Every structure is written in structure tokens, then in C-alpha cells.
Amino acid sequence: MNMMSSVSRVADLPAPADALLVAFASGDGDMVDQHFGSASAFYLYEVSTDNAVLLARQAFGTEKKDCNEDKLKPRLAWLAGADIVYCGSVGGSATRQLVALGINPIQVKGGPDVEELIEGLQRQLNGSPEFWLANILKQKQKTSAAARFDAMDEEGWEE
């Protein structure tokens, strides 16, 4: 199923406890071929063990590749809430800001296919995830459990 909607920011989407929200810096949605800070677009997928759904595409204006920190702000604001972002390259400042938002930036070379990267994530989700992915999944489970307890508390749930 390929439902793509308009999303003002990733954080507005429901955070799936059993899936990853993964963004790809891509000009066409097929290959990761963009530098984070100057990416013309990000394609956001919800990736689970057996499914991948394109949720949104967000386009950005093209800026000159310089040390302009302001160009990062709209990208960071839109991506907040994502678990992972794949890009062709990412600078140190952007990396620090992504990590502070809880987003794991992954730099990939050679313009790999988005589909192949998704399949690689799914293999890990179905098997033994690498350390970095295991940490993301562990954090998502903690967040999900805390949200359930908060919801029960708001409903006045008692033992």
C-alpha cells in the first residue's frame, strides 16, 4: 500500500512502536543521492518487519553549499520524530543536531537504492539487528511503554 499524504512534520504522525520512521535524502525517491543540508527532498517511509509504506515526501528549496546553518532548520524541523535519516553525506553540525533530536543519521555512498536500504533494515528487524538499530528499537519500546502508562494515568486508571 502506498499512501502518501501531506505531512507538515514527521512528529505529527502517530509513532508506531513496532515500525521505524525512516527518511531518505533523495532527488527522485529511488536513490539516496543528496547531501543532508542541501537535499531537495526527503521521502519518509514507515518500515516494519514485513512492510514498507511511503508516508510522505517533503521538498525543500535548493541553497548554495556553504556554512549557512539556517538551511538546516526547516529540514530538522520537518524530520523531528523520525528514527533514521539516510543521506549521501552529512556535516558535523547537522549530525549533532539530528542526534539531539533522537534521529540516527546514516551516511551512504554511491547512491544506493532506497528499496535495497529498506530491505536491509527489514532483514535486521527480522533477525539480529546491528547495535545502532537495536538501540533505536530499545528506545522506541521505552517511549511506547511510557506513553501507555501516561494514557492510563490520564484516564484515571488505578490498580
Rank of each mutant, 00 (worst) to 15 (best):
M1S: 14
M4P: 00
M4Y: 05
S5N: 11
S6C: 04
V7K: 05
S8T: 12
R9V: 00
V10K: 08
V10S: 02
V10H: 02
D12I: 07
P16I: 06
A17H: 11
A19V: 03
A19M: 00
A19P: 03
L20M: 03
L20K: 00
L20V: 00
L21Y: 10
V22M: 07
S26I: 08
G27I: 03
G27S: 10
D28A: 10
D30E: 12
V32R: 05
H35Q: 05
G37H: 04
A39P: 02
A39E: 01
A39T: 09
A39D: 02
S40T: 12
S40R: 09
A41L: 02
F42V: 05
F42M: 01
Y45T: 06
Y45L: 04
E46P: 00
E46H: 08
V47E: 01
T49G: 14
T49I: 05
D50F: 14
D50L: 03
N51H: 12
A52D: 00
A52Q: 09
L55S: 00
L55P: 00
R57T: 08
T62S: 12
T62F: 13
T62A: 06
E63M: 10
K64L: 09
D66F: 06
C67I: 10
C67K: 12
D70C: 03
D70V: 11
D70P: 04
K71L: 11
K71N: 04
L72P: 01
K73F: 09
P74Y: 10
P74S: 09
P74L: 06
W78E: 02
W78S: 02
L79Q: 09
A80V: 06
A82F: 06
A82T: 02
A82P: 02
A82M: 02
D83W: 08
D83A: 10
I84E: 01
V85L: 03
G88S: 14
G88N: 11
G88Q: 07
V90Y: 02
S93D: 03
T95Q: 09
Q97K: 14
Q97P: 01
L98D: 10
V99R: 14
G102C: 13
I103R: 04
P105F: 06
I106S: 05
I106N: 06
I106T: 10
Q107V: 10
K109L: 07
K109D: 01
K109T: 14
G110T: 03
G110I: 08
D113S: 08
D113F: 15
V114I: 12
E115R: 12
E115Q: 12
L117T: 07
E119I: 04
G120K: 08
L121F: 14
Q122R: 15
Q124N: 11
L125C: 05
N126H: 04
S128F: 14
S128E: 11
P129D: 01
P129F: 05
E130L: 14
E130H: 15
F131H: 09
W132Q: 13
A134T: 07
A134K: 13
N135D: 15
N135L: 15
K138Q: 14
K140W: 07
K140Y: 10
K140I: 09
Q141P: 00
Q141V: 10
K142D: 01
T143Y: 08
T143R: 15
A145W: 13
A146H: 07
A146M: 15
A146K: 14
A146P: 02
R148D: 11
R148L: 13
F149G: 04
F149H: 13
M152D: 10
W157F: 15
E158F: 14
E158R: 14
E158Y: 13
